[in-house]
Design a protein around this nucleic acid. Structure first.
Length: 486
RNA sequence: GCCCCCAUCGUCUAGAGGCCCAGGACAUCAGCCUUUCAAGCUGAAGAUCAGGGGUUCGAAUCCCCUUGGGGGCACCA
């Protein structure tokens, strides 16, 4: 049975469609989602599209896609603030009547020069409240000029507001460090401060988990809640995620949008696990947690305060762990699109799925991302291998003895009836001693001939999958290359 | 300039006064396994707990200062 607290837990993710969601955004969603699911509450999606100018085409779809990819489902929404304008207007009217807000007629130009002068005088940039106490007559005059005013909040001149952050504890802000912020823009759209407060209240949001960058605007929101006579939700400000250079995550840090990680072949579960550990931990040793375990154990008490630097190496490692945990079938199913996308064009499509499955069984353990699969497996698909002939001579043997070794191997292989890994090994292993200094050299030589590389999956399994015809052909090619060196 | 937040190995972190001359993970290095690679196993190195003052019998843990880092101060969110 759920307690009353649990049924009333309502979280939300409220991105603005001004770009594609990046790691930081997604980590925030994850925490919101985990908290909601942990408490059996609701998770709501709301699009804060109140900035017409900065709106980015396709951003909303990218947000929805990212959430779906990560399996972060929502119970309500998406709501769009741009469709809720009348609500904000109505609330603004009531605030106006109660005297909590006022119309401001200052032009953007005036505000800008004001700020410039403040900067020159090393003063904090703050609205000088010129329109705060206009007389009725002055207001009428301004209205008559036809300028559309903005609506500003009448911030108390003295006193202070203490917010009780669930992660940081109590934090006090003096009102005289705040200014009269804008609630309604002249284009009729609300600012973030108005819209977020109104919607969080109307949507009965119980907990606001958002990034630390919002911490200093929280007193404004609390003041607004008070003016509206509404109960404020609980706030929890999450540590920010930084790039390796300790700067905020941005384009410069390579893959920043979450869809990019999808393209690079990371698994949603690995991503979620990794992101959960950025700012949260279960204990001193548990690192690998399934979706269910994350939900079960997530709590705000175990969220840290310090900003975290994104460590891609660890993400890759973890993704490798998840990749290896997949069943062979599932791995093949997931890797197939990547092969299709990234294998050279010369490779005929559609790919033979049963061949692909066998190939991928050797790749699974070696790939840290799905996008590495095509590169790891390419020699299985190519007709002609391109490699440096010198690789054939990496051991102590000269070109002639090497050629002899290959020739002998070919002789034996041609007669093989059952082309499988065990038989191949049984035939080739005894040859290593007589033809070369040992298995390392002999098998190494064959490996280069058959795969074109010095690092590849186990030789005999590789040959078995490649098939007799292809192997013999490649060994003959190697022989030709060697004859050029003799 | 003002306000706010933060500070444990390179990185993610454990640590809520004695269990810590600080534990785990990634990365690094070495060894084992082995036909190469990967995986796996074992081990090493890596943090005077930013610095300085207190409080205390005792501090990474509490308080203060300093320093450093980050965030905010738009008719952006």
């Amino acid at each position: 049975m759920q307690s009353e607290l649990e049924t009333s837990v309502r979280l939300r993710f409220a991105p603005s469609p001004t770009g594609y969601p990046h790691l930081g955004n997604i980590r925030t969603v994850l925490f919101n989602w985990l908290f909601a699911r942990h408490h059996g509450g609701k998770f709501i999606l709301r699009i804060e599209d109140t900035d017409v100018a900065r709106k980015v085409e396709g951003a909303v779809e990218a947000i929805l896609d990212s959430l779906r990819w990560l399996g972060l489902d929502w119970d309500e929404g998406p709501y769009f603030q741009s469709q809720r304008l009348p609500i904000y207007h109505e609330i603004t009217q009531s605030l106006l009547q109660k005297g909590h807000v006022y119309s401001c007629y200052c032009s953007p130009e005036r505000l800008q020069t004001m700020r410039q002068e403040q900067a020159k005088r090393k003063q904090p940039p703050k609205y000088d409240r010129r329109c705060r106490d206009l007389t009725q007559q002055e207001r009428a005059q301004m209205e008559a000029t036809g300028v559309t005013p903005v609506i500003r909040f009448r911030t108390p001149l003295d006193g202070e507001t203490t917010i009780c952050d669930l992660i940081h504890g109590p934090i006090t802000f003096k009102h005289d460090t705040l200014d009269d912020f804008v609630l309604l823009k002249s284009d009729g759209y609300p600012t973030y401060h108005l819209a977020v407060v109104v919607d969080d209240h109307l949507m009965a949001i119980s907990h606001v988990l958002r990034a630390d960058e919002w911490l200093s605007s929280t007193p404004r929101h609390v003041l607004l809640y008070q003016a509206l006579n509404w109960q404020a939700p609980q706030f929890a400000h999450l540590p920010i995620i930084l790039g390796p250079d300790r700067a905020r995550l941005s384009k410069r840090h390579g893959a920043t949008s979450i869809t990019e990680y999808q393209k690079q072949g990371y698994l949603p579960d690995a991503m979620a696990n990794f992101l959960a550990l950025l700012g949260w931990s279960l204990d001193d040793r548990t690192e690998l947690l399934s979706r269910e375990e994350l939900i079960k154990h997530f709590s705000l008490e175990r969220v840290g305060k310090a900003a975290a630097i994104f460590n891609k190496d660890k993400l890759e490692w973890m993704n490798g762990v998840y990749l290896r945990k997949l069943s062979p079938d599932e791995f093949a199913q997931r890797a197939m699109p990547f092969l299709d996308r990234d294998l050279p064009e010369s490779v005929k499509r559609p790919l033979d799925s049963s061949y692909v499955s066998r190939v991928l069984s050797l790749i699974q353990e070696r790939a840290r991302t799905l996008a590495q699969a095509p590169q790891l497996a390419s020699f299985f698909f190519l007709d002609e291998l391109q490699y440096d002939t010198g690789l054939l001579l990496c051991g102590k043997l000269d070109a002639q003895s090497t050629a002899k070794a290959v020739t002998t191997a070919l002789q034996y292989l041609e007669g093989v009836m059952n082309w499988n890994a065990t038989d191949l090994e049984n035939i080739l292993r005894p040859l290593a001693g007589e033809l070369s200094s040992g298995t390392r050299e002999f098998f190494g030589l064959l490996r280069v001939a058959v795969t074109g590389r010095t690092a590849a999956p186990p030789l005999f399994q590789t040959m078995a999958i490649l098939g007799k015809e292809k192997c013999l052909k490649r060994l003959n090619t190697a022989l030709q290359l060697l004859s050029n060196l003799c």
